[in-house]
Write a protein that binds this DNA or RNA. Structure first.
Length: 429
RNA sequence: GGAGGAGUGGCCGAGUGGCUUAAGGCGGCGGUCUUGAAAACCGUUGAACCGCAAGGUUCCGGGGGUUCGAAUCCCUCCUCCUCCGCCA
């Protein structure tokens, strides 16, 4: 959420700050008009309350002294009756104001490239060369079933489309990847591992920005307030919801493995083959809580932590800066990492590393006690960041496609072999 | 699932209708003392909102109600604890 104070003070600049960010037409003007009336009503209501409070005090004193207070009691009642409609109006204005504020997206950092959609994203760096083969490389949806390690048909039978059964070495590799990612982050990158609940409530989803705007992307458990988590970002960021942290603790860095569940509403016909876009996938996620001063630097570091894994796995990738129009709702700046997939002869998103600044922290009330002017302690909103490092399914796809050999077998990246009991290659089951 | 008990500031905890402007303690911050630190002592220290300011309003798990007045009484929901049942 954007602060009300900021909206007021910077109102004239808002159309510029929100350009290309998909803000409904007229929403800002509507917000300004309601806010102006609301402040007038608030002042009136609070004045009436102050009058009643002082009357109540007076009544108490009179009664104690044994004096008659009937006149003051009558007056207090009259004020209450007169204020009733004013209070109702104030409540109604709030109920119109808050939904507008809740659906305004975050404001991008000033170095985020202009652009309406993904076509205007900017390639910042490329690591490695697209893998070359002296034979026509297969896509994983052909390679996997041929090896007998990916089974899309039976998954569809058990559950439906956009699910996959992993078998034998694929299942092993999946497990190895989770372990590998967590080990590197905890032992070398300074993250603390967390294993959170996979079901989250609506307050948590509101905190990170999935609700109320994106409910259709989620799986909701009927008759409950529980949703299947779409990413570990939700439970892990909400670890500190409604808390005041100490500046000494920052930055806090967590990594977490969870399965992720996405309804993929509106994705019909997109990436329907293979296991690129699934209703359920495993992912290791990085989440940081930082001071406002440190968040840009920590964003670079977090992105490097994700890239480091791809480099160790010998997977060619590039780093993309998302343009304003392609930025997610809550993000102030996002780097996407794209891995090279021979089966599609192109780069495909494998990680998304975002700085949300105080947008999520304001929604989730995550604060830090800092020293303010004159040494007085005061609360400041933290900055939250997160990134995938790495999603297991897409990484598995990248390994299968990049490490395939002419005879249809697949070699296993060196760093993963110890995690696979020394297994060096996958052959047909 | 059943029966009891309990939710008060960053933490602990007092408070059963108006001297609560939430006592006291811990922790934090500043100071005195000290070569430095510790201890001791002194001071200070919740949040949101309206307002240029003075000042004001709201918040004692959430919501609703009674009352001139609610942390305190009533209703309801949530969470935690204890015991019982069931269970990996």
């Amino acid at each position: 959420m954007i602060s009300r104070d900021f909206l007021r003070k910077e109102f004239d600049r808002l159309p510029h700050l929100f350009r290309q960010r998909n803000v409904p037409a007229g929403a800002l003007e509507e917000w300004r008009d309601i806010d102006a009336v609301r402040r007038m009503r608030l002042t009136q209501v609070e004045g009436a309350r102050a009058a009643r409070n002082s009357l109540s005090q007076k009544i108490g004193a009179k009664r104690k002294a044994g004096e008659n207070s009937a006149g003051d009691e009558q007056l207090s009642k009259e004020i209450a009756t007169q204020t009733l409609s004013l209070e109702a109006e104030l409540k109604a204005l709030d109920e119109r104001l808050v939904p507008i504020e809740e659906t305004l997206p975050n404001i991008p950092q000033d170095d985020v490239p202009d652009g309406a959609d993904e076509a205007q994203n900017v390639v910042l760096k490329t690591w490695g060369e697209p893998t070359r083969f002296d034979f026509p490389p297969l896509a994983h949806w052909d390679l996997g079933p041929a090896l007998g390690i990916l089974d899309f048909e039976r998954a569809a039978k058990i559950t439906g489309s956009r699910f996959t059964v992993l078998k034998g070495p694929a299942s092993l590799l999946s497990r190895a990847l989770i372990q590998f990612c967590l080990d590197v982050h905890t032992r070398e990158h300074g993250y603390t591992e967390v294993l959170p609940p996979f079901l989250v409530n609506s307050a948590s989803l509101f905190g990170t920005g999935q609700l109320p705007k994106f409910e259709e992307d989620l799986f909701h458990l009927e008759g409950t307030d529980w949703y299947l988590t779409p990413t570990a970002e939700v439970p892990v960021t909400n670890l500190h919801r409604d808390e005041v942290l100490s500046w000494k603790e920052l930055p806090i860095s967590y990594c977490a493995y969870t399965p992720c569940f996405r309804a993929e509403a509106g994705a019909a016909g997109k990436d329907t083959r293979g296991m690129i876009r699934q209703h359920q996938f495993d992912k290791v996620e990085l989440v940081k809580f930082t001071s406002s001063q440190a968040s840009r630097e920590e964003h670079e570091r977090l992105t490097r932590d994700a890239e480091d894994l791809l480099e160790r796995l010998e997977l060619p990738y590039r780093r993309i800066a998302l343009c304003r129009g392609d930025l997610g709702f809550a993000s102030a700046k996002t780097y996407d990492l794209e891995v090279f997939l021979p089966g599609q002869n192109g780069y495909k998103e494998i990680s998304s590393c975002s700085n949300f600044e105080d947008f999520q922290a304001r929604r989730a009330a995550i604060r830090v006690k800092v020293e303010g002017a004159g040494g007085k302690p005061r609360n400041e909103l933290v900055h939250t960041l997160n990134g995938s490092a790495l999603p297991v399914g897409r990484t598995l796809v990248a390994i299968l496609e990049n490490f395939q050999r002419k005879d249809g077998s697949v070699s296993i990246p060196k760093v993963l072999q110890p995690y696979c009991g020394g297994l060096a290659e996958i052959r047909r089951l």
